[in-house]
Every structure is written in C-alpha cells, then in structure tokens.
Design a protein around this nucleic acid. Structure first.
Lengths: 245, 245
DNA sequence: CGCATATTTGAATTCTTTCAATCAACGTGG
DNA sequence: CCACGTTGATTGAAAGAATTCAAATATGCG
C-alpha cells in the first residue's frame, strides 16, 4: 500500500519504482505525531524544511487583527506545504493540525536534489503546487459567488474527490473530522448558519454527516447543488507523456 | 526609467545590470496591444508562453456554470502570469484586460534559461509567484471574514501598495480603472452594495474616487478600516542577501 | 446631440448573524 | 456506575447586512 504522498502524485503521471523510492527517501518522518489543535508551522516561523502530511488532516489559516480567523485550505494526507517556501524568510500564515497528524519533512538539500536530478519528480511536484494554487482560486470563487449551501456542498465534493485520489474513501463515505465550527471558518459563515444549512442539506438527502463520517448518496446531485466541476483539480494525468513504465 | 516588471522584482533583491538586461531580453513584446475587455488568455487555452503585463491592467477570473463570475486577482503592470504554467495542459481560468494592455511573452526556452542559468533571477521569479499565492490567500481571507466596507478598503490599500512598488503612484493618488461593477466582482458583492459602501467611505473621508483616479487622504486610516497589514505582500527585500552591487 | 455605459436612489425581500438557551455526547474521576 | 465538566450541535427570536428590481441620473464619446 503506497503512501498517500506517492498516490497523489500518481494522479499526475506514472512514477517509476525508482522515482517512488527516491521520493519517499527524501521525506524524513518526524518522531512523534503532532496533536490535534497544535500548529505544524506557525506564522512568522522561519522555514527550515518543507512539511508533508503523511497521515491526518490539517489546515492553513490566517487571522485578522481583531481575532476573526479564516481557514484558507484543507491539508489532507499526502499534501505538501508550499515548495519554494525557502525563498521567503518566514511563513505568512500558519498550518494547524485538525486531527493528530504525522508529518514528514523534506530538507532544502533533499528538495534541491529532487528538483535538479529527477525531471519526472520535479514536474510532479510542480503539478502539486499548481493544483494547490488552483484550489485556492476556487475557494476565492466560492466565497465570492457561491451561496452558503453551495459553498458547503462544494467543500464536501472537493474533499471527497481529493480523498478518493489517495484511496481514502469507502464507497460513498469518507472521514470528515471537521466540526461545524471548523466548517464555519472554511466557508466564511457563522457556526449557527452552518448548522441550519447542513440541516437543509440533510433534509434534501444531499449528504449524511454523523460521527465524523460524511456520506454522499448521490455525488452528481451534490455536485450540481455546489456547482462543483472537478476540472480545477487537474486529476487527469496531465503529465502522462512523462510517465514511466 | 525601468520597466515595471524589473522594478517589481527589485522589491525582492538588487538585480545587476546584467540581470536586468537578461530579464528584459527574455520578454518578447507582442506587436499590437490587447484592447480593454478582451482576454489575454482564455480558460482551456493551451499554454505556449508566459504572459507578462508590460503596461495596463488585467484580471484573472473564473465563471460558475450559471454565469456568476468572480475576479480572482488583479494584474498590474509588471505582473507575470503563473510560472510553471507549462506543466498543466490548459488554463483553468482566464486572464482578461481591464484597460488596453501591452503584453510580453516569455517562451518556454527563455524561461528555462532564466531559471537554470541565473540564480538571482530564478529566486526573484520564485518570489513573485509566492507573493501572488500569498495575495490569493489574503483574498480568501477577505471574502471569508471581512465586511463589505473592509473588503473594499483592503482592495484599495493593496492596489495602492502594489502600484507604489512599481513607481506608479502620485502622492496620495493612483489610477484606478475598475468600474463599480468590476469592484463588485472583486469583492463578491452586488454592484448596488458597492455603490452604497463607497458612498459611506467617501462620507468618512477614507477615499476619493473620481474619473478613474483613487485618492487616499490618510493611508493609515484606510488600512485600519480594512484591517490591512502589508506583511502578506512581502515587499521587504527578503532576498537582500542575494543582491548584486 | 444622442446613444451607450456607469452611477445613484428607493423600497421590499432575502439571507445571515447575533445572542441566549437548551440539548446531546463523551470521557474523567470518585 | 454515575455525577460532572467540556465540547459540539441545535433552536428561537430579533436585529442587521446585502440583494433584488426598477427607475432615475450622470457621464463619456462619436
């Protein structure tokens, strides 16, 4: 069973056995896990390595001066915090752990080697970044244009699709450890309104959400409700021409 | 008078005369300008070169199926459309011209040379990208957490700051070619509400906005109103240690 | 001057938030 | 095994924010 980190990159292209070995070799696993609620990296921290989510969920977030907080992105198993992060002297946002999390780290040297000596890996990592940027744009679109219900529906579709690609869904279901309060910071609305909107979605049979498990009885219907179009995720082997084997 | 493209990168580090010459040499200017309202690149277009805004303003945007549209980012003189864009086979959003625009293009080969043979330029371009990502995150924060007035105030502060760095402000004023309708797509609100919010801001003396010119009598006050903190723009010569001269 | 584009206004409606309570689930210690 | 504290989910009612629709003004340009 491959690590989610490798599985994710396979959505871009086929990696050779060697590529996968090299990739995993570049990620040094931290000893103890980070507990839910703690930061993986905090804003203003100097950046000494690139964190990789080996297991567990996290989220990027930024605060406003007066305490309001927005979750900027969800980090799922296999996700990498920004490459090129070394260029800036410090983080401009924080990354927190939503569940207990195992984090790996790619050192500056390891990173340089991957990018210089392994073209297929380099392109895969680039792709990872570009997808992350595309997702960030989609969240901008969501917050700017989608209604409350559409925003939540869209988040559910996105998360399910991203988990699917790393093999972490079970039929129509997947883990969903966010509280309604977390969701409110994702979707830029009050916790009370999240609650009411979820009730409406349940009543419509769009989702089930109980005990940290999300079930989507009819994905197409939910996608319709959230104006979800997976194109922005670029999970379509765009790097197939580089593929090994 | 240096091109805004070069001036912008100087916010990261000092480039040598050679660097600047090489940089400008890599940008091939298109013959005729793109007229206001036209696309610089359209969604689904194959990507054959990296466009650079030499003069004029543009914006990234994405549509929802039902026609709602969100402006995802503003492109000012000197801005580059995503590097690494070659990795994906096609654009996942469009870039349009807000005013008449002169666009330059960096070819895949020119780009490869810049990145491989010129470390200082490579780092500068990386920095440009990371700043663009940071801005995208800030817009996510804005749309999720800031009120209507705060969002508009923040946009004004951001635009003014970004123009300042390329030397395109005049004292307390700068160009501001967006219509209220454009602003409504930037800030994710209705045109009518933009109008009313602008009136409130004018009444408070936060801004003047007439004839496509924005004036900010007291930047600090506006920054306060928009919870604007320039840190996310990283205009602080973080690459000073690489500097030439 | 006259058309096309952009801004402004009013009123009614809809969407969200806020505040304050209540209820449910869960783990801990006695 | 149960009381208790904590966290998360739910509810109701009222206030506030933003949208919609339609119409009236302005403004700019040929």
């Amino acid at each position: 069973m491959a690590s989610p980190f490798v599985r994710k990159l396979r959505a871009f292209t086929n990696l050779s056995q060697d590529d996968e070995r090299i990739l995993l070799g570049a990620v040094k696993e931290q000893g103890r896990p980070i507990r839910a609620g703690q930061d993986v990296i905090s804003v203003s921290d100097p950046v000494t390595a690139i964190p990789v989510f080996l297991s567990g969920w996290g989220y990027r977030y930024r605060y406003l001066r007066d305490g309001r907080r927005q979750i900027l992105a969800l980090m799922l198993p296999g996700d990498i915090c920004d490459l090129g992060i070394f260029v800036l002297d410090q983080m401009d946002h924080s990354v927190g752990a939503l569940t207990d999390v195992k984090v790996g780290e790619i050192s500056p040297e390891g990173y340089a080697t991957l990018m210089d000596a392994h073209p297929r890996i380099r392109e895969s990592l680039w792709w990872e970044q570009l997808v992350a940027s595309s997702i960030q744009r989609e969240w901008t679109l969501s917050l700017g244009q989608r209604s409350a219900l559409e925003r939540l529906a869209h988040v559910f579709c996105e998360v399910f699709s991203r988990l699917e690609i790393v093999g972490m869904t079970n039929g129509e279901s997947c883990d969903f450890p966010l509280t309604q309060s977390d969701l409110s910071e994702v979707a830029g609305m009050s916790p009370v309104h999240v609650n009411r909107t979820l009730q409406a979605m349940r009543a419509d049979g769009l989702i089930r959400l109980e005990g940290r498990v999300l079930t989507i009885p009819d994905f197409e219907e939910l996608a319709q409700a959230g104006l979800f179009d997976r194109a922005y995720l670029h999970f379509d082997h765009v790097g197939a021409h580089l593929g090994a084997n």
